[in-house]
Simulated scan of single mutants.
Amino acid sequence: MSITSIGEKTYLITGSAGFIGFYLSSDLLKKGHKVIGIDNINDYYEVKLKHDRLAQLKEYDNFLFLEGDISDKDFILDSFIKTKPNVVINLAAQAGVRYSIENPDAYIQSNINGFFNILEACRNYPVDHLLYASSSSVYGANKKVPFEETDFVDNPVSLYAATKKSNELMAHTYSHLYKIPATGLRFFTVYGPMGRPDMAYFGFANKYFTGEPVKIFNNGDFENDLYRDFTYIDDIVEGIERLISNPPTDSVPHKVYNIGNNSPVKLMTFITTLEKALSNSLGREVEFEKIFEPIKPGDVPATYASTERLQEAVGFKPKTSIEEGLQKFADWYVDYYNVK
């Protein structure tokens, strides 16, 4: 199934200077589609990385960038009026579980008010399909694995998770009231080159090259280590693109899908694989100095995606191994930061 099957359309992607937004925009642009990118270039993490992503997107003639915040309703409505998007993919959000404890206001402003503005714009200026980022965090501390989209998700353990669950409820309501075809994307621990520096794997690399120990929040308990369903960025993009051309057609046209690797690994396994990948990139042995600390509030012991619904809908499940994905990240990191 190809995205080109839905014809030449205009895609509005919020968070286009972000990790997933950049890769999705880039792939759509390569395929000749018109992309309208929106981002506020906030300083939650290294702004240079966002500008570097954006610079690559601006090399395409079929890319238009609008700098602004989705929490600014007038800006969003004006953007819809001017660009008349056919498909909207809302990836703009205040990310991070731990940061939601430090700065909850940012999450309400972006993830709740901002998403409300996107829904209002889609109501007033109808689109063929609205896709939006949810998160595996909606599953909270569910002990039943793998996580299925039909599981009970009313016990979030962080404000970030609560805002993402709220997005799903808001989208369902607007789909019910205004027949907006909407699809929620529950992403599972996305990683890869040009990723988010606030993510653990990126932070581990940063600390190694600055001579600092890495903090591992598992109490040093290797038997009951944290498990994560790490999903490589290319698999995330393919999953989104396949779903774009499959808008829900039910009486309430709203669905949610897991996009995860369906193959969780222990955090310590992930770390040793990253050490090996950096060793390969540098041509010398890399071993992190490690400090073990208790699990942080809002963190969950395991994430594990069922991908059956995604496979049934679009015939795809993520497939990139952590060995392959982390090697690509390590090669990029060593080159981008020119480390030795």
Rank of each mutant, 00 (worst) to 15 (best):
V265W: 08
G211P: 04
I233K: 00
M1E: 14
A95P: 11
L169P: 14
T272A: 03
A95G: 11
H172L: 11
P247V: 01
E308K: 11
Q94K: 11
F63Y: 13
V157E: 03
S25V: 03
N258H: 01
E46T: 14
E312T: 14
A161I: 04
N219Q: 12
V35I: 06
V47A: 05
N124D: 15
Y208G: 02
S166E: 11
S2D: 15
K266C: 03
S321P: 09
T273Y: 00
F115N: 13
G21R: 02
V47Y: 02
R186Q: 08
A161N: 03
A171F: 07
P156I: 00
S263K: 06
V252G: 08
D74K: 09
T269E: 03
V190D: 06
N42H: 08
L159D: 09
F230S: 08
H254C: 07
P248W: 03
P126V: 08
V314Q: 11
G325V: 01
Y174H: 00
E212G: 08
E324A: 02
R309E: 10
E102K: 12
F115T: 09
E120G: 07
R186L: 04
L57R: 01
K73M: 13
I240A: 00
T307Y: 04
F316I: 11
V256R: 01
S25A: 05
D234M: 04
Q94N: 11
D335T: 05
P85V: 01
N338C: 10
I13M: 02
E102H: 15
I101S: 14
I101T: 14
P85W: 00
V157R: 03
G211W: 06
M194N: 15
D105E: 12
I216R: 02
L119E: 00
S166F: 15
A17D: 10
E149Y: 10
I244Q: 05
N42W: 09
P294C: 04
N113P: 14
L77K: 03
E59N: 15
H33G: 13
L91F: 01
D128S: 02
H172S: 10
V47P: 03
T150A: 13
N167L: 10
L131T: 12
W332H: 02
K143I: 14
Y227I: 09
E285L: 03
K165E: 06
N90F: 03
T189S: 08
T307S: 05
G260E: 13
A171S: 09
K82I: 09
L326M: 06
S25D: 04
A133D: 00
Y44A: 10
Y160V: 15
F152R: 14
L282D: 09
G315P: 10
S79R: 10
I295R: 10
I322Q: 00
M1R: 13
L49Y: 01
V190F: 05
L159F: 12
L91R: 00
K48P: 12
T173Q: 13
S158V: 05
I76H: 11
K164Y: 05
K73L: 12
T273H: 00
K207L: 15
I322N: 01
E148L: 07
C122A: 01
N167G: 05
N338S: 06
M268H: 15
P146L: 09
D39F: 06
G21W: 03
L267T: 11
F116T: 14
V286D: 05
S158W: 04
S100N: 09
P301Y: 01
L57T: 01
T272E: 05
N224A: 04
I89C: 01
A161H: 02
I36L: 08
